[in-house]
Design a protein around this nucleic acid. Structure first.
Lengths: 348, 348
DNA sequence: TGCAAATATGGTATCGATAAACTGTCTGCA
DNA sequence: TGCAGACAGTTTATCGATACCATATTTGCA
């Protein structure tokens, strides 16, 4: 098979559409139409062309097609991270929706940094994507400008930006976290702490903290019980370390809301290691409904958001915007969240 | 800002390099060189061009550049899945390596199906990637042919294919799993079962099972204690369900090797729920050194493979192959694995 | 039978950049 | 002083496909 390679690279030239046309005895234009399953090609010619294609091992060159049709078929999608996060599900939703419509997703990770995001946006726009899906509503000024001037549909996800660029598919992280705190309150918890990352890089994490603080204020609970530990994404490991700090500082805490299920899980495991029963000694809740929250022992109370649906909805919105060629009516899609009470906050 | 959009799309035309050239008072070629940081452009012209660029809000069109230079800057990477798998780490390794060299990764998920893989390969090749990284060594016949005829570097990862297409960055899943079983044997376990997925879709999973079986044979342990449950990727949930079946069928089992840490974790949690102590009543080991294995209580014995390094090495190999323009010396890089003994198999 | 509409196909001109080869300028050193 | 060679910039010719318009053939139906 090595031989084959040397062959391909020594002959060097890959066959082009013109070659196919020559072999099939038609014009390149007809080949082009045939390969795009255009309607006006007779069955006979179609077969001849298909035959020529296999014979030559021809592979369509989309990068040439993109230039001449001025439709690249690319869609850019930027997420903070893929590792251990719901964004992987969102990406799956995006890709499944878009590949079906024959488009190619260009994926980028910002690593939770809006400066990286700016860089990535700039880089992605060079490929002339037909649309772009970003995570969150906070961007650098230049990034906003780039997105606005790109002249393509823009979708912000996973958030409800106060000042959206165009389309939005998201929910209020603050409201969701607030609802979680209220639920804990209803269950009788009164000394509720929040455990999250230090920086404001993770804006969704920051919003969740905000929701927590609002709820604590409204309910008249002791405020300020916030541990900020490590930079996002908060890992399980960090959750475990942070809970130790938290318990040292406020030993009377009876419930902890974590910025994500991963940190919640880490916290729970660490408590178990130290012989602190969850939920009897301390209740711990997470955010995101990760699989680990559904399967761990105890199962973890959390806020569920359908991450894959966010991706699918974003893809759908994008496709609709492209088809209607009408950027004038940006729409905001609010996806629901659900507080799922599980064993980790079941008061004895 | 909406206005801005309407503006951009109603004016319609994005500025081109020729526009920049006109504004800067130079030829398009000079602009091209300037933007690619080519050496032979004087500082003065450079500045004029940069100024013209921001003035017009010009964004380079790489898809046009790709056509004329016949170097797209794309690299295709195919992984089985991104959700809850080490492949997300590998992808990160791939992208970080390649974006630094100015290339764009085209990502695709096969969903553990080589038929999907074939489709994706075909689709990706249309974009004329400069190289392609695939997962595993099993492909459809047509996929192999497509890869061989593409005339670009091909890298197979996460496996040691008996019949590699070109380059390889991987390890023997069978050997790794065999080593794990041996370690359990050394620790005194004698009735060791294997818990994995049903189908042969996940070839790495199948290899791990093979390694298990080989070890059991060699050690003279009771064979056939294999539970196959659900299709890959085996989730935590499925691990939990499978361990129940396993214990019903072979109540005397003293150790279980799971196809991944996720299923191991699910199995452990289910045992805990049923009051079966891990590791005292039953030892459970996983594979992959996921974060959950490092943080759970008990911590899970596993086989660690540096997934991100696989990606980085693959990226490095690819870049080297591209630079040397020499496909004639395919190399196989074997990455190490380590059996990590943790609490989940600590015999009392 | 006749003729408009529908269907099939071809010819030509791009799309927006870069490669390659070429023309001047300027420098430094024998 | 003269000339090689480095440097700056231009001109021209693609790259491989598709849009658009023109043309040829067929079909449908009054």
């Amino acid at each position: 098979m090595n031989e084959n390679n040397k062959l391909a690279s020594s002959i060097g030239k890959m066959p082009t559409m013109a070659d196919v046309a020559r072999v099939a005895g038609v014009s390149p234009m007809t080949v082009s139409r045939a390969l795009r399953k255009h309607q006006f090609v007779s069955t006979k010619t179609m077969e001849r062309i298909e035959h020529a294609v296999d014979q030559l091992g021809y592979v369509l060159d989309k990068s040439a097609g993109a230039l001449s049709s001025r439709r690249t078929g690319f869609v850019a999608a930027l997420v903070p991270s893929l590792n251990n996060s719901n964004f992987a599900d969102t990406v799956r939703g995006i890709t499944s929706g878009l590949t079906q419509s024959g488009r190619q997703v260009l994926l980028g990770y910002t690593d939770y940094s809006i400066e990286n995001e700016e860089q990535l946006i700039e880089g992605m726009l060079r490929w002339r994507p037909e649309g772009i899906i970003v995570t969150g509503g906070r961007h650098t000024a230049r990034a906003r400008k780039l997105l606005q001037n790109a002249g393509i549909p823009v979708i912000e996800t996973w958030d409800l930006p106060p000042n959206p660029i165009q389309n939005v598919v998201g929910f209020s992280n603050a409201e969701a976290c607030r609802a979680l705190v209220y639920r804990l309150y209803e269950r009788g918890y009164r000394k509720i702490a929040f455990l999250g990352g230090t920086t404001t890089r993770d804006t969704r994490g920051a919003d969740r903290r905000l929701g927590y603080q609002r709820a604590v204020d409204e309910l008249g609970l002791p405020p300020g019980r916030v541990i900020s530990f490590g930079s996002p994404p908060i890992s399980m490991q960090q959750g475990g370390e942070a809970i130790v700090l938290l318990l040292r500082q406020w030993p009377d805490v009876d419930a902890v809301v974590c910025v994500s299920d991963l940190s919640a899980f880490g916290a729970i495991a660490e408590c178990q290691r130290r012989g602190l029963d969850v939920p009897d000694r301390i209740a711990i809740a997470g955010f995101g409904d990760f699989e680990v929250a559904r399967c761990s022992h105890p199962r973890i109370t959390t806020v569920a958001v359908d991450a894959e649906a966010i991706g699918q909805l974003a893809a759908g919105q994008l496709i609709r915007a492209l088809d209607s060629k009408d950027l004038n009516t940006p729409e905001t899609l609010v996806v629901p969240f659900t507080v799922l009470e599980r064993e980790s906050t079941r008061k004895a």
